[in-house]
Write a protein that binds this DNA or RNA. Sequence first.
DNA 1: ACAATAGTGTCTGTTAGACAGTATTCA
DNA 2: TGAATACTGTCTAACAGACACTATTGT
Lengths: 223, 223
Amino acid sequence: MNYTKPDLTVDIVLLTLIEGRLHVALMRRDKAPEEGKWALVGGYIHADEDTDSTAAALRTLRVKLDFVPSHLEQVCTEANATRDPRGWSASVVHLALHSPEVLAGLVASKGMQLFDVEDDGAHLPENIAFDHQKLIRLAVERLRAKAGYSTIVAHMLPETFTLPELQGVYESVLGKALNPANFRRKILERAALEVVGTLHGTGRPAQTYRLGHALDYFDRQLA
Amino acid sequence: MNYTKPDLTVDIVLLTLIEGRLHVALMRRDKAPEEGKWALVGGYIHADEDTDSTAAALRTLRVKLDFVPSHLEQVCTEANATRDPRGWSASVVHLALHSPEVLAGLVASKGMQLFDVEDDGAHLPENIAFDHQKLIRLAVERLRAKAGYSTIVAHMLPETFTLPELQGVYESVLGKALNPANFRRKILERAALEVVGTLHGTGRPAQTYRLGHALDYFDRQLA
DNA sequence: ACAATAGTGTCTGTTAGACAGTATTCA
DNA sequence: TGAATACTGTCTAACAGACACTATTGT
């Protein structure tokens, strides 16, 4: 009754929005296999220190990037015989989101890079490790699907934001323009947004808001 | 760099609908740990014969029940230090659906039992193994969520069915009565249903249909 | 005053829910 | 002919999308 145990890892698809385009955080692998290729932030689950798989993902982000994401959720598990040349392996894939300002800081200090994932990954580097291009696609699909009926995309903004800014991230992720009047009406009906203050810009100042809950689900599609 | 590898298993929450109530298939464990308790159909992933985790789930169903489900999908992965007394373990949880007629046959021939999962599991047996009560809840929640915007529930009917029958399974899973006229209009708009024939019952005969695709997703909520 | 951006009011077409009514079978 | 079940037509209220309008700032 002793089977060969597969490897068990976590991989984190850390995404943000830069100039209206989704970007993913990748790091260069510094050891074999796939040395030198670009890979998701990830690593082995440590049975002795991780209480569960999400804790393993948080530890990995802390150790490799010294960073706690605004949002983290499990996407799926990719487990098969061919994804890793070393043999049968399983990866619990997580989606993480944060604001571009903070991630840009990590690029400078931690050697991580941000790559544009739009146009079906056409702008990603050629040499992506393992099945990580597929894992990126799965996480991006999850984000796009969830954008339409939740406040998930707000986690790619700083903690406080204006409604036009929020509309912008919805438009980018959903890939279509939204009518400002209708967006305001619907988002204020559906999401628990708390008024924070006022932001002065180049025209009329905007109200700033923050999320009342980490994640709100809508009973109807936003757009 | 050699960590203790956690155990990697699959567990299948096999559900069907009996007299309007969701039921789950459980089997009595015949060995330690948790011997004698009721457990989901599941087992270790076999790195030497399973190409991926879904193949492992299908093999497990074939070996233990000699059965191929009408629908099978991954739900999530439950992975932590405390779910199995033997130590850190990970289970890739799957949701499987089939018609009650076929599952009733397996009860007779394979020692499996079907338990009512309604009322938050109040009618489940006391002695459920490991964290399987939680896994059942996760799969049932997934099914209920997906029922509102897909044809997933049709997999708990035989291959051909009438619209009143289909309405019945939607009503049971969604937990509310639906207006027949509106149900017909919306399901025929949204789902790819193929006309098969005519079924004679006690009143006016009903058209029979089958699913045009394994799973249709709707752009709007059904109810 | 005007450019720029934020935010409101309101009209219209579409969709969802309610419900009355028709259709087709068997006893 | 009536009970039983399947199915259709149509009215109304709610909602989504479009768009013209007002509001508040800086220059």
